[in-house]
Lab assay of single mutants.
Amino acid sequence: TFVALYDYESRTETDLSFKKGERLQIVNNTEGDWWLAHSLTTGQTGYIPSNYVAP
């Protein structure tokens, strides 16, 4: 799992909003700078900017 370093507000319907400190499970990280992730807090799935999270 990864932890959010910053808050992120989604800009498209495929993005995932999250708050700093939220735990995220990475589903697919082969898309370059945008990873498909599942929030362990909200249960939602969407794309996140990879530079906003850390292991």
Rank of each mutant, 00 (worst) to 15 (best):
N51T: 12
N51L: 08
P55K: 09
T41L: 14
G32Y: 08
D33H: 13
Y8H: 06
R23E: 13
L16E: 00
G43D: 06
S17A: 09
A54S: 11
K19I: 07
D15P: 02
Q44H: 11
T42I: 01
L40M: 10
S50D: 02
S17H: 05
A54F: 09
D15C: 13
T42Y: 03
D7Q: 04
Y52D: 02
F18E: 00
Y6S: 07
D15L: 08
D33S: 13
D7A: 06
T45K: 08
T14N: 13
S39R: 06
T14R: 15
F18K: 00
K20H: 05
V53Q: 02
G32S: 14
I26P: 08
G21T: 02
T30F: 10
W34I: 09
E31A: 14
T1K: 06
Y8K: 02
G43F: 07
Y52I: 06
D33P: 11
V27C: 13
L40E: 08
K20G: 04
E13Q: 11
G46T: 01
N29C: 13
E22I: 01
Q25W: 14
Y8R: 05
V3N: 03
G46K: 01
E22N: 04
K19L: 08
A37V: 13
E31H: 14
V53M: 07
A37I: 04
S39K: 06
V3Y: 11
S10V: 04
R11I: 12
D15M: 10
H38P: 00
S10L: 03
L40N: 05
N28V: 10
K20W: 04
K19N: 06
L24D: 01
T12C: 15
Q25K: 13
L36W: 11
T12Y: 14
V3C: 07
G43E: 05
L5Q: 06
S39H: 10
L24H: 00
N28Y: 10
L24R: 00
I48C: 02
V27H: 08
S39L: 05
E9Y: 12
W35K: 04
Q44S: 08
S17Y: 04
V27K: 08
P55G: 07
T41V: 14
I26F: 04
D15K: 09
T30R: 10
N51Y: 11
E31L: 14
G46M: 01
L5M: 09
A4G: 06
E9P: 05
D15A: 10
F18L: 07
H38T: 15
Y47I: 06
S10T: 06
K20F: 05
L24S: 00
G32F: 09
H38I: 15
V3F: 09
N51Q: 13
G43S: 06
R11D: 11
G21M: 03
P49W: 07
Q25I: 15
E22T: 05
P49C: 09
W34P: 06
A54M: 13
D15V: 11
F2T: 03
W34L: 09
S10N: 05
H38Q: 14
V3I: 14
F18N: 00
L24A: 00
P55E: 10
T12F: 14
E13H: 11
S17P: 07
Y6W: 13
S39D: 03
G21W: 05
L16V: 06
A54W: 09
A54G: 09
V3S: 04
E9H: 10
Y8W: 09
I26S: 04
L5E: 04
N29R: 14
L40R: 05
L5W: 04
I48G: 00
W34H: 07
D15Y: 12
I48Y: 01
V27N: 06
A37C: 03
R11T: 14
Q25L: 15
V3D: 04
K19D: 03
T42Q: 04
E22C: 04
E22G: 01
I26L: 07
G32N: 11
E9L: 10
S17G: 09
S50G: 07
W35P: 02
W35A: 04
V27S: 07
V27L: 15
R11K: 14
W34K: 11
W35N: 01
N29H: 11
W34A: 06
L40T: 07
E13T: 11
P49L: 07
N51S: 14
S39F: 02
F18C: 04
T45H: 07
D15H: 15
T42C: 03
N29K: 14
Y8G: 01
L5I: 09
T30Q: 13
F2E: 00
R23P: 08
S50E: 04
T45Q: 09
T14E: 10
Q25T: 12
T45A: 07
S10W: 03
T42V: 01
F18A: 02
Q44R: 15
K19E: 05
D33G: 13
L36P: 01
L24C: 02
H38A: 09
D33Q: 13
H38G: 04
G21V: 00
W35H: 03
Y52N: 03
S50Q: 07
T12V: 11
E9T: 13
Q44F: 10
G46V: 01
N28I: 10
Q25S: 09
N29T: 14
A37N: 00
R23I: 15
E31P: 10
V27R: 08
P49R: 07
Y8Q: 01
T14K: 13
T30N: 11
Y8V: 02
D33W: 11
L16S: 03
E31W: 12
L36G: 01
L5S: 03
N28C: 12
Y6M: 11
F2W: 15
H38E: 10
G21I: 00
G21K: 02
T41R: 12
N51F: 10
T12P: 02
S17L: 03
W34D: 03
W34M: 13
V53G: 03
S50Y: 08
Y8T: 01
T30D: 13
T45N: 06
F18W: 01
R23L: 15
T1G: 06
Q44W: 08
F18Q: 00
A37R: 00
G46W: 01
Q44P: 00
G21N: 06
V3T: 09
K19A: 07
E13M: 10
T30H: 11
P55F: 10
A4L: 05
A54T: 13
A54C: 11
V27Q: 08
T12N: 15
S10Q: 08
K19C: 08
T41A: 13
V3P: 01
R23S: 10
T45W: 13
E13P: 13
Y6T: 06
G43Q: 06
I48K: 00
Y52S: 12
E9W: 10
L36N: 02
Q25N: 09
L24T: 00
Y47M: 10
Y47N: 05
T12R: 14
L16H: 02
A4H: 01
E22K: 01
A4I: 03
R23Q: 13
T42P: 01
Y47W: 15
A37M: 10
Y52H: 08
L16A: 05
S17E: 05
Y6Q: 09
N28G: 15
N29I: 15
N28T: 10
S10A: 15
R23W: 14
Y8M: 03
W35D: 00
H38W: 12
G21L: 03
L16N: 02
F2N: 01
L40Y: 09
T30M: 13
Q44D: 08
Y47S: 04
D33T: 12
F18P: 01
P49E: 02
D15W: 08
L5V: 06
W35V: 08
G32M: 10
T14S: 13
R11P: 08
I48L: 04
E31I: 13
P55L: 11
D15T: 09
T1A: 09
T12A: 12
T45E: 07
Y52C: 07
A37Q: 00
F18D: 00
Q44C: 10
F18Y: 02
K19F: 08
I48N: 00
Q44M: 14
S50C: 12
Y6L: 08
A54E: 13
G32K: 14
S10M: 06
D33N: 12
T41I: 11
P49T: 02
